Simulated scan of single mutants.
Amino acid sequence: MKTVKIKHQTWDIAADIHFPPGFDESRQYPAIISAHPIGSCKEQTAGNVYGAALAREGFVVIAFDASYQGASGGEPRFIEDPTRRVEDFRVVVDYLVTLPYVDAGRIGVLGICGGGGYAINVAMTERRIKAVTSITGVNFGRLMREGFSGYDPIAALEAMATQRTAEVRGAQPRVDNFLPASVEAGKQHGITDIDVLEATEYYKTPRGQQPHGATSARYSRNAAAVGWDAFHLAEVLLTQPLLVVVGDKVGGFGAYRDGCEIIGRAASKQKELAVVAGWSHYDLYDKPEPVRQALARVVPFFKENL
């Protein structure tokens, strides 16, 4: 593995490239872009789990940090703007097609959680991407309009507008953490949703905790996400082979629901919903058995289509 910096407007994207065993720079390899979840970083599941596993199967895999997040540049920090997140993929593709050991005609994309929604969305208009896999993917725009806005998106947009005005007039930025400080704290505040509690157990303990895995977002810059939809025009523009992997232990973030929806809507002639029975959204991040079952579908899919 090596870490690289990729130029993006006036800042750099930080990325880790995972190489296959016996890597030979004089050969050409199929490549996969691996995208991290919302509020995450490349060292959490996108790189260390799925990136490393796919590299062992013969792919060059690049896991990158989103702009304004992780080790990537961009100011202000902690922006979760879907338009920017999607553009990051294009910049990474631009980088891949300059590498002599990457076959520019065999580039795929994989995303986890919100990264899965972004991967699906970018593939619609980035035709250099030839195959798409979503691992417990979530349509972040739908989630923002529902649970993340208290099912009142207009009130949330009004509050974001007020906060943005206050900040440009000199107020302290409001940076919200998506999660409680611990599982115990969440339960004490009456949280029962499996996704929130399991996310907290992943991100707030040594299991998944990383210095750049902030699980935070700048509130005043969330308005763009409220008006965005990962699946818009999928019936027309999403034609690449598509694999969607979900668990059937359903939580509030809605990956199972979103997975079923995109499989129904995608124009792809080859599309498949793989349900990993008995496992949840966050089990698919790093637990050996559900990850093994996911990879048993993902690896053949990419080998066939790349």
Rank of each mutant, 00 (worst) to 15 (best):
S72W: 06
D24R: 10
I17G: 00
E126K: 11
V236W: 02
A166E: 14
K269G: 12
M1D: 14
N48H: 15
S26R: 13
S34K: 03
I262Y: 11
A234L: 05
V132H: 05
F19G: 02
G70S: 05
V236S: 05
H212K: 11
A14M: 05
A119C: 12
A156V: 03
E198P: 07
I129K: 08
A31M: 02
I38S: 09
P76K: 14
S34C: 11
E272N: 13
V86K: 12
G141L: 09
A66W: 14
F64Y: 15
G39Y: 08
I62M: 07
G70V: 03
A14N: 10
G251R: 03
P20K: 02
M160F: 14
S268W: 04
V226R: 00
V275P: 02
G115D: 06
R142C: 04
S220Q: 06
C113R: 02
D286C: 10
K42T: 04
G254M: 10
R77C: 05
I129M: 08
A155D: 13
I6K: 06
P30Q: 11
A14Y: 06
A156T: 07
V299H: 01
L242D: 00
P82C: 05
V236P: 00
E158A: 12
V92N: 03
R164K: 15
D94W: 15
D16S: 08
G117N: 07
I79C: 12
L110S: 01
Y256P: 02
T98K: 13
A185R: 07
A296N: 10
S216T: 13
G116L: 02
P180A: 10
V138F: 08
V61I: 11
Y219K: 09
L243V: 09
L99P: 00
E167D: 11
V109A: 10
Q163H: 04
M144T: 09
T162V: 10
I33E: 01
V93Y: 08
P20I: 03
E80Y: 13
D152K: 12
N48F: 15
I79G: 00
E57R: 11
F78T: 01
E198M: 01
L157S: 08
Y203Q: 00
W279F: 15
D94Y: 15
E25W: 05
Q163I: 03
I112S: 05
V175I: 15
V245H: 05
A104H: 02
A159V: 05
L284R: 07
P211C: 10
M124K: 15
A53Q: 10
N222T: 14
K303Q: 14
P76T: 13
R106M: 06
M1C: 09
L233E: 13
E272Y: 07
N177M: 06
S216F: 01
V138H: 05
A52T: 14
G150F: 10
A53T: 06
L143M: 14
V92C: 03
A230N: 10
Q172C: 06
G141Y: 11
Y118D: 12
D283N: 14
M160Q: 14
